[in-house]
Design a protein around this nucleic acid. Structure first.
Length: 476
RNA sequence: GGCGACGUAGCCAAGGGGCCUAAGGCAGGGGAUUGCAAAUCCCCCAUCCCCGGUUCAAAUCCGGGCGUCGCCUCCA
């Protein structure tokens, strides 16, 4: 039974979707005014993992991740670069999809864009105005926070706490400084749509409410995003949504911890960030994914070379195991009746692995625990292999299959990308290694070592093992 | 100032009253294996931020400190 920490309740709860095995899952997507940085990638990867894990457990998941392609940041940035906002948004939306693909994030079922939902947004805002939750002042429409009695239930604050914070910008036209914009009037040179309040564009929080509810329904099961979105973004989403429907908007609010860099939150405004695409030049996707899954998703995590290098070594360890097993001839069926004691132990470990794994993962998506089960299996299988019981080699095959099965939700260890799409490079490499092995037969170590070290410089690592030479590429 | 999260080995990181003489990974040391290298295997490497308390029993619960981070303003 899966348990998730629900920000709304402030504690872990049993996860039970509204409709038996169907899960309606919304995850906050990017505002496409720039490439996303490696900290932004955390929720993308972590919630991709959660989605896959739900599917792994047999749920039917409907997954929506929006693209905010209309926003003041886009307008500002477009002006700086001297291009149209639409053009800028399109450029970065494309880059976003490319980067997601490189990170191995599965495509969402629905990928709504704000500009395609303006009609629905206007409808939603109109409904709020009719109900007395929204009011117009000179073409802007605000949400009347005091009207919504549950305001603050997600972030655990009261309106009075917020007031005393006193950092809320005072705009004279608002009835209350805490009220937030649902709709903003646009200057003639800004993007705008005709509405009952004149030409304008959606406010800052409304798009998520509308896109979530349009694609998934009035009440959704999971809404996920970064911890820094709890207030005001998600708080306001709740207010807008529930004020209109009178129904609960979302049942489980899930928030990931932030990525830190040298002790501070990585963010665009602090300037201490690295683009995800730049990190991917250095490290392959599985290293990045492992890096994220090796810490519980709610904890803060420090970004550093060292951490990524560690992750890389760990990923290599599993691939090394998979590779060695694949090189065994394990055609024989191997009867389990004649297993040695150590074989029986290993078989037992393999057979109990899924339960142990789910036991970890069910506890608030504890991926470090889940990875522990996977690595434990690798360790024990390696040990078994070293005992040299060749008659039981099919057990290693089984262990490998289990490792891959359990790694699937994490998008790990399913096989590495080939060197080139044509396969020619691979053939040439094989040929080169054959020649090198002929040299080794003749004990021409000097030339053989030179080939190995020069290949290494190109990123191809050669290993000689049990008479066979293998190679791995240090890139994806 | 208000609200919240967190503090486990050299580093990363699970665990959350007795099975902990604390998973797993990385790095390091010693050994086996090896043309060399790599990989693999074996062995070694923590008493859980501090102080009080509850309990037969606490890393694990309670209270108080200290520290780090986040939110209260755009932000994943």
């Amino acid at each position: 039974m899966l348990h998730l920490y629900n920000t709304l309740k402030g504690e872990q709860e049993k996860f039970e979707p509204l409709e038996d095995d169907k899960v309606r899952f919304y995850s906050c997507g990017p505002t496409v005014y720039d490439y996303f940085h490696i900290g932004n990638a955390r929720p993308f990867i972590v919630f991709d993992g959660l989605r896959r894990y739900l599917e792994f457990k047999g749920y039917k998941v409907e997954f929506t991740q929006n693209v905010t392609d209309l926003d003041d940041k886009i307008i500002d940035r477009a002006e700086e670069e001297g291009v149209e906002p639409e053009e800028l948004a399109e450029k970065y939306a494309e880059a976003y999809f490319e980067d997601l693909d490189r990170l191995g994030v599965k495509e969402a079922d629905y990928v709504p864009r704000v500009t395609e939902y303006v009609d629905e947004i206007i409808e939603h805002v109109s409904a709020l105005v009719e109900k007395g939750y929204g009011y117009e002042v000179e073409g802007d429409v605000y949400f009347r926070v005091r009207e919504f009695s549950d305001y603050g239930k997600l972030s655990g604050r009261s309106i009075d706490d917020l007031k005393s914070g006193a950092r809320v910008e005072v705009e004279a036209e608002k009835e209350d400084p805490l009220d937030f914009a649902l709709w903003k009037s646009s200057d003639p040179d800004e993007p705008g749509w005709d509405s009952p309040w004149g030409r304008g564009r959606p406010g800052w929080h409304i798009e998520c409410s509308v896109m979530a509810q349009t694609t998934l329904g009035d009440t959704i099961d999971i809404h996920a995003g970064g911890h820094d979105l709890i207030f005001p973004h998600h708080e306001n989403e709740i207010a807008q949504s529930e004020a209109r429907t009178g129904k609960q908007f979302c049942r489980y609010w899930i928030h990931n911890g932030l990525l830190e860099f040298e002790g501070e939150k990585m963010s665009k405004s602090l300037g201490n960030f690295e683009y995800a695409r730049d990190v991917l030049e250095e490290y392959d996707r599985e290293t990045v994914r492992y890096f994220y899954f090796s810490t519980h998703y709610r904890k803060p995590l420090n970004f550093s070379e060292k951490n990524l290098e560690d992750a890389k070594s760990a990923v290599d360890r599993v691939y090394e195991f998979i590779r060695t097993v694949e090189e065994l001839d394990t055609d024989e069926d191997g009867s389990e009746a004649s297993l040695s004691d150590s074989g029986k132990k290993l078989l037992d470990r393999i057979e109990s692995a899924r339960d142990r794994y789910e036991g970890e993962m069910d506890s608030d998506f504890n991926t470090p625990g889940g990875l522990g089960v996977i690595f434990d299996l690798v360790k024990r299988a390696n040990k078994f292999r070293d005992e040299g019981k060749s008659e039981n080699e099919h057990l290693l095959q089984k262990a490998k299959e289990k490792v891959m099965e359990l790694s699937e939700p994490l998008g790990l260890f399913q096989g590495r990308a080939k060197v080139s799409p044509f396969g020619l490079e691979e053939d040439l490499l094989e040929l080169l290694l054959e020649v090198r092995n002929a040299l080794r037969e003749k004990q021409d170590w000097e030339l053989a070592d030179r080939i190995r070290s020069e290949l290494k410089e190109m990123g191809v690592e050669v290993k000689d093992q049990e008479g066979v030479s293998t190679w791995t590429v240090d890139r994806n």
